[in-house]
């Protein structure tokens, strides 16, 4: 399980209405249904992911996020989720604005491009970082808008977005259920822009 799932679970109210943008195979929504009995809807564009959602019993709408969320009414969901998707949309600021319109609260997770390993890669090799977590080459990556924790903080400030909670994680794919908080947690929390591999933000207007 992705470590951001547990963080998100803490910030979601039981029985609330949840919209997950770029919901993948529906694993997060299924998890939240089981843990919090939420009423959920996913939005996805990948055909295989949509079929997987349906097999998982997760309601899913085929829709391109870059076209906006005009078909969703203001404040029609309690929480709108955008996990590991912000960096893949054409207009992250537009999608964020739409999320904040449709949801009373939003939770966003994204990989931190300011992570020391990404910096080291660029510094020592002079090439765009490629890793297990970011396996694509610059020319074929779906991740077209990487940002750092600091970048995201600046965007929130510029757009008057209130941050309710922040959570920073040292690793993206550590099995969160297997281990408790990492010994590095205090360091990650102190210097997230350098040490967080993944950031989880809980925001509202």
């Amino acid at each position: 399980m992705r470590p951001d799932f547990l963080t998100i679970e803490q910030w979601v109210t039981p029985h609330s209405r949840i919209l997950d943008l770029g919901c993948g195979d529906g694993a997060l929504l299924k998890f939240l249904q089981q843990k919090k009995q939420v009423r959920s809807l996913g939005v996805e564009i990948n055909a295989n992911n949509i079929a997987a959602c349906i097999s998982n019993g997760i309601d899913v709408i085929e829709q391109d996020l870059d076209q906006g969320l005009a078909n969703f009414a203001d404040n029609s969901f309690d929480t709108v989720l955008l996990t590991q998707t912000l960096q893949a949309v054409h207009r992250p600021d537009f999608v964020l604005q739409e999320m904040l319109r449709v949801g009373k609260e939003c939770i966003i997770t994204f990989p931190n491009f300011g992570h020391w390993q990404a910096r080291r890669y660029l510094l020592t090799r002079g090439k765009m970082p490629v890793s297990k977590f970011m396996p694509h080459e610059w020319y074929n990556t779906p991740n077209i808008h990487f940002c750092t924790v600091n970048d995201f903080e600046v965007l929130c400030e510029q757009r008057d977005i209130s941050v309710l909670h922040r959570n920073f994680q040292a690793a993206n794919y550590r099995d969160a259920t297997a281990s408790g908080p990492s010994v590095f947690s205090p360091i990650v929390d102190r210097w997230p822009n350098l040490f967080a591999a993944q950031a989880v933000y809980h925001v509202t207007n």
Partner: peptide, 16 residues
Amino acid sequence: MVDALIAAEKPVSYVE
């Protein structure tokens, strides 16, 4: 149709 179903808070899946 799907938008109306979402607005009516009905469970719906849609594929194009």
